[in-house]
Design a protein around this nucleic acid. Structure first.
Length: 1020
RNA sequence: GGGCGGUUAGCUCAGCGGUAGAGCACUACGUUGACAUCGUAGUGGCCACUGGUUCGAUCCCAGUACCGCCCA
């Protein structure tokens, strides 16, 4: 066998990956040793629409290192793979696919069931992209257990029958029953593109160019007041009589829905008019609305005019003010963020709003539509332009010095949907919420008391900060792709619209007609119940109607499509009954909530859901709680905090012991990678160019805790060179018959071999410590330093002469062992090249993926061999350095004259002479004295002279020695100063003092030797 | 505005109480039993600034400046 000059990653990787897959090397429990504990991780599930980006590469490399490391140590390892159904993203992708062919029906045209079938088709075809890509990275996930957050959902095709859906529904129903999930009309972030609510985390704020308009809200009845402005010292800077209050807004169209104007209670400028009414300067003149001027802490007196219009249904801050002050919430927009055209006429609406402003309780205002008829149906931006034009025309804009309407151009923060990219509208809608405040405490406690730790620690602060200020979680989404909310609604017939006049518990024809007439049914409220299946809640609805008059109370509960259908069906049934008096005709129709759950609600159950919960599976018992979660900081709230809350709420245990949060991979300049900047690095391209091992090693070496890796192709190239270096060291060994030597741990006698065995042990100790502490960069640096810096740079070079001598056999055996140890230790980081070397260098009963992780430690370190080899290395380096500085040709072989040496030095010289001769390019050491034409080299316990010829430049040699002397003396001076300080000697640790004395002694010796050499030189 | 970080060699970053390290880049030399995807030697640092704690500070504390990120 002979090895190629370089490792051919492209062909080897595919072959090796196939071998791992075929042998089931990554299956849960593979290579587990009896008695070893379990070690489990769940992959942060990539989106089913996703493809591998550099962040995945980092994330999965770090996990894979832990998985492989534990597997080689005999742990019962499960690294659980899977994907997330990504509600909005997937629905968007499939709709876009459909739209490519104009002959396709739209989503609305094909209907829910058909659309979902198409999504599953798409998933079957394209949903596995990232799995193949993770395999290319070498990720040792147990692919046979691949999970999916929508598995087992109704309509799931063959192959998707897992039970994740059961887990999600079960949890929803449980939490609903415990009152942890509730329905409410609240202001939510509404995505007008997808026409769905989204959670606050799915909104990103961006600074955009905006405009701020300033308008006058005239006081009711033409009232006036003294408006006074003062500077910081209280001096009056402006005093005028006003008949209006000035309001600044970036969204004039929302003025239509204003319910009040608020000022700060301490704002003296407006104190005279608090409690009075003012007029909204928009809408038909005949129906101008009046709204109260109220006080609230929210307005900032220093911002704008200090007075804020309150539009509770369209702004989160205003919403808070409105709730605190009982201001009605008037909705102005529809789901596509156009001005509403439903509900009451403007005239009727304005009348109701006017009553409300006067303090009358007007009840539910959802039918109140304060959009004037001429603006109804307009896009909000068109409406804005019309509103502004009307106000300007009326002269109610605040004007600048030239009399033009005053419009500030300024940067404003605007919310955008992270998926759709459109401006998010705060929208008042009925949604489902998780009462996060009720389940957050256990998640906080678990981290506080250390049951789960978050690394690096600084992220714990972020975690606490977020959890301690947690908002209710909007979990309903107006989408089709997702877990449909398991809630059914029924008409609330017990509402006051329906009364049993006679109190005889029987339905009289009059009562029946009243129920049918006057839109009573349409207006009836809803009841709702949650259950995993429709059949499970029939009883609950029966109980609801049990109090109704006969024979309604015996109606059959049936499921219909929606509320409209329910009204129709119920009315029809009543009509039938009226004709036939046959009570079996009576039905009580219920309909299911059409919305689905937020994808994060399901991925929040990932740890238990992937292990088979709610079934009590063996995997759940063995692998839960999982050990480590590795993830990016960007989803610490989205995912980590929610998993903590949900697992604790559902099964009462933390989902993982350790959360390791890694950074965001940036480009080499430190910029965030983004498509628009064009600086995205494709991990697959890097793998193609340099191999997966090089990429993995690079990412690992950059994974310093709390830092963002900055990655460029240069770095990967450098580490590809490291792969090549390893390969060639092995190639050298192979060419020298190393792998024909006996295997197993050798017991050599030569110091070189004893030394490298100790260095191997040191590397193993450092590596395990680094990995145990999640210090990946240290692990990588340790491997690099050991393999390149010790094994290749020194041991291989030392071995060359030994292969010809009496220690040849033990050297071969030692090199074999050291190389096998090195590739074993490097395997978790660089699995491909190490597996390949493993296969090429012996006939093995197991693949390296199931190799035995070394357990030896400091007992393999031979202090004497260490000392001797470090002396030899130091001497070689000093000779090389002296030669280079004196311009001795590299090829020239010099005599090595020992002018003085103590016993230890003589022993080291004698034992390692061939090594020194070869690496320092000198002849066998011989005793003698320094003379003309020689350069001097000092080593601990010895002095040397190397004749470099008659033409030596004595002044150059003197300069070299002086420079070295100066450096040593400077160092020695520092040490002496420290030791001379009595307070140092009194206070410092004994160890430190001893160490310092030792260093000084060594330096002093070196100084003495160098000085002696210098004197000799001068004497000649 | 609030919170969390960062500032160390030309670049990218380690180190985090005993007066500094790596990789890349750079310079010179080099076909010495694997490796030029390499080897050997070298250049390069008031460890942002100002105070404090300490026998001793790049490291701990406080402040300043600048740069990020997250949340308003």
């Amino acid at each position: 066998m002979s090895m190629e000059k370089t490792f051919d990653a492209a062909t080897a990787e595919a072959r090796i990956a196939a071998a791992w897959a075929d042998s089931g090397a990554f299956a849960a429990g593979a290579n587990a040793r009896a008695g070893q504990p379990a070690f489990s991780m769940v992959i942060p599930p990539p989106n089913v629409t996703g493809s591998l980006h550099i962040g995945h590469a980092l994330n999965n490399t770090l996990q894979d290192i832990l998985a492989r490391w534990h597997r080689m140590r005999g742990f019962d390892v499960l690294w659980q793979p899977g994907q997330d159904h990504a509600g909005i993203a997937t629905q968007m992708v499939v709709e876009r696919e459909l739209a490519k062919d104009p002959s396709n029906p739209t989503r609305a045209e094909m209907g829910r069931e058909e659309f979902l079938r198409r999504v599953w088709d798409w998933k079957a075809q394209s949903g596995g992209t990232i799995i193949g890509q993770l395999k290319r990275l070498g990720a040792s996930l147990d692919w046979s257990r691949n999970a999916f957050t929508m598995s087992g959902a109704p309509g799931a095709p063959a192959g998707e029958q897992g039970n994740f859906h059961d887990a999600v529904i079960r949890v929803f129903v449980d939490m609903y029953d415990k009152g942890l999930i509730y329905r409410g009309k609240r202001l939510v972030n509404w995505d007008p593109h997808f026409e769905t609510a989204i959670s606050d985390l799915e909104v990103e704020s961006r600074e955009v160019d905006g405009q701020m308009w300033h308008f006058k809200y005239p006081l009711a009845g033409g009232e006036t007041y003294e408006y006074v402005e003062r500077d910081a010292d209280g001096n009056v800077t402006l005093r005028e009589t006003r008949d209006y209050i000035s309001i600044a807004t970036t969204r004039p169209e929302t003025m239509l829905g204003d319910g009040a104007v608020a000022v700060h209670p301490d704002d003296a400028r407006y104190a005279p008019i608090v409690g009075k009414l003012c007029e909204i300067p928009v809408g038909p003149q005949a129906h101008r609305r009046l709204i109260p001027i109220i006080t609230d802490d929210y307005p900032d007196p220093d911002f704008g005019s200090g007075a804020v219009k309150i539009t509770g249904a369209h702004d989160f801050n205003d919403y808070g003010v409105a709730l605190r002050n009982g201001i009605p919430l008037y909705a102005l927009m529809d789901g596509r963020a156009r001005m509403r055209s439903d509900g009451l006429s403007y005239a009727e609406s304005a009348a109701i709003a006017t009553r409300a402003a006067a303090g009358v309780d007007v009840g539910d205002v959802s039918a109140v539509n304060l959009v004037p008829e001429d603006l109804r149906g307009l896009d909000r931006l068109d409406a804005r332009a019309r509103v502004v034009a009307a106000i300007n025309a009326e002269g109610l804009a605040v004007t600048d010095a030239d009399g033009n309407p005053y419009v500030e151009r300024k940067k404003i923060m605007q919310p955008f949907g992270d998926r759709s990219g459109v401006v998010i509208e705060p929208m008042l809608t009925d949604q489902w919420f998780v009462d996060t405040a009720a389940i957050v405490q256990p998640a906080i406690d678990a981290v506080r008391d250390g049951r789960t730790r978050i690394l690096p620690e600084q992220h714990e602060k972020v975690y606490f900060h977020w959890l301690e200020n947690i908002e209710p979680w909007t979990i309903s989404r107006q989408l089709w792709w997702g877990h449909q909310i398991p809630v059914w609604y029924g008409l609330n017939l017990a509402a006051d619209s329906f009364t049993d006049d006679e109190g005889d518990d029987a339905l009289s024809p009059i009562e029946l007609l009243r129920l049918l007439g006057d839109d009573q049914l349409v207006k009836a409220g809803d009841l709702h119940h949650a259950a995993a299946h429709f059949d499970d809640l029939v009883e609950a609805f029966r109980a609801d109607i049990a109090g109704l008059p006969h024979p309604l109370q015996v109606s059959r509960v049936i499921e219909v499509a929606d509320r409209e259908a329910a009204v129709d069906v119920f009315a029809q049934a009543l009509a039938d009954y009226n004709l036939t008096q046959d009570p079996t005709r009576l039905v009580y129709p219920v309909w299911r909530d059409p919305d689905v759950l937020d994808t994060w609600f399901s991925s929040g159950l990932w740890p238990i859901g992937t292990l088979g919960w709610p079934e009590d599976t063996a995997e759940l018992r063995k692998y839960f709680p999982t050990d480590t979660l590795i993830t990016g900081f960007d989803i610490i709230f989205f995912w980590v905090a929610r998993m903590m809350m949900m697992q604790l709420a559902v099964v009462g245990e933390v989902p993982f012991r350790t959360v390791y949060v890694h950074g965001l991979v940036r480009d080499e300049k430190g910029a965030k990678m983004s498509k628009s900047k064009g600086n995205v690095i494709d991990p697959l391209e890097l793998i193609d160019a340099y191999g997966a091992d090089a990429l993995r090693f690079t990412l690992t070496s950059m994974a310093a805790m709390g830092r963002d890796p900055k990655l460029g192709p240069k770095h990967v190239e450098a580490n590809r060179n490291f792969v090549t270096k390893i390969w060639n060291a092995v190639r050298f060994a192979e060419m020298n018959g190393v792998f024909a030597a006996p295997s197993g741990q050798p017991q050599p006698v030569h110091t070189v071999n004893r030394w490298i065995i100790g260095e191997t042990a040191r590397a193993r100790i450092a590596l395990d410590e680094a990995l145990a502490g999640y210090r990946y960069n240290e692990a990588a640096q340790g491997l690099y330093g050991f393999i390149w810096g010790k094994l290749c740079d020194w041991y291989v070079e030392f071995a060359k002469p030994l292969f010809d001598g009496e220690h040849a056999e033990e050297t071969r055996a030692t090199m074999r062992w050291v190389i096998e140890q090195a590739i074993t230790m490097a395997h978790p980081v660089m699995p491909f090249v190490t597996e390949e070397i493993w296969a090429l260098t012996g006939s093995r009963d197991r693949m390296l993926v199931h190799g035995d992780w070394p357990e030896y430690g400091a007992e393999l370190i031979d202090a004497g061999a260490d000392r001797q080899m470090n002396w030899v290395i130091g001497l070689i380096e000093d000779i090389r350095s002296a030669r280079a500085q004196m311009g001795v040709p590299v090829g020239a072989k010099l005599d090595l004259i020992v002018t003085q040496a103590d016993a230890a030095a003589r022993e080291a010289l004698a034992a390692n002479a061939p090594l020194i001769e070869r690496l320092a390019r000198v002849n066998a050491p011989m005793d003698g004295t320094a003379g003309r034409g020689m350069i001097a080299v000092a080593a601990p316990g010895a002095s040397f002279a190397l004749p470099i010829g008659e033409v030596i430049d004595a002044s150059a040699e003197a300069a070299r020695l002086e420079k070295s002397l100066a450096r040593s003396e400077k160092d020695a001076g520092g040490l002496r100063g420290r030791l001379g300080n009595p307070r140092f000697v009194e206070n410092a640790d004994a160890e430190v003092i001893e160490e310092t004395r030792g260093k000084l002694a060594a330096l002093d010796e070196e100084i003495a030797r160098t000085r002696a050499a210098l004197e000799q030189l001068r004497a000649m």
